[in-house]
């Protein structure tokens, strides 16, 4: 826009001529997701901790055979897969908020978020891959 085209006044921010399509509801859905996933994680994560750390002999009984025994059941496979995805997305989205709050320079914010997104993709992808391709006879 050349200088001579400049309007005499700037539109009011909420004036109807402003294109509404530029607004996105992403943050609303992210807010809602934190609450819905949190509700499910209460059962998934606290149940997981109770089983793994307190029942029977806690961590002392965990080894390859124990994992093989659990993942023989579709129920625990599904439990672990859901927990992996929800915790990864919930925790990652939460960390995105934290980075947005504290990073002072746009560059720092950008790179911290890239680091976060890469680590989220790695965790969720590796975890999902392991769950779907687990082989109880890998040692033989």
């Amino acid at each position: 826009m050349s200088v001579t085209d400049a309007p005499f006044s700037v539109d009011k921010p909420r004036s109807p001529q402003r294109p509404a399509a530029r607004r996105s509801n992403f943050e609303l859905y992210s807010w809602l997701f934190m609450r819905l996933s949190g509700l499910l994680l209460v059962f998934l994560v606290l149940g997981h901790l109770l089983i793994m750390l307190f029942l029977d002999d806690g961590v002392q009984r965990i080894n390859f055979a124990f994992v093989a025994g659990r993942w023989a059941s579709p129920f625990w496979q599904f439990w672990d897969l859901t927990m992996l995805w929800l915790a990864g997305l919930h925790g990652g989205n939460g960390l995105r908020t934290v980075i947005n709050d504290y990073a002072r320079k746009d560059q720092t914010r950008f790179w911290l978020k890239m680091l976060l997104y890469v680590s989220m993709i790695v965790t969720i992808a590796v975890g999902t891959f392991v769950l779907f391709t687990f082989d109880p006879n890998i040692g033989n």
Binding site: N63, F64, A68, G88, T123, V126, V130, T133, I138
Partner: peptide
């Protein structure tokens, strides 16, 4: 969570 997914992923490497 990050550390824990990676340590568990070792079941895909070898039981040992």
């Amino acid at each position: 969570l990050f550390v824990h997914v990676l340590d568990t992923a070792l079941v895909r490497v070898s039981p040992n």
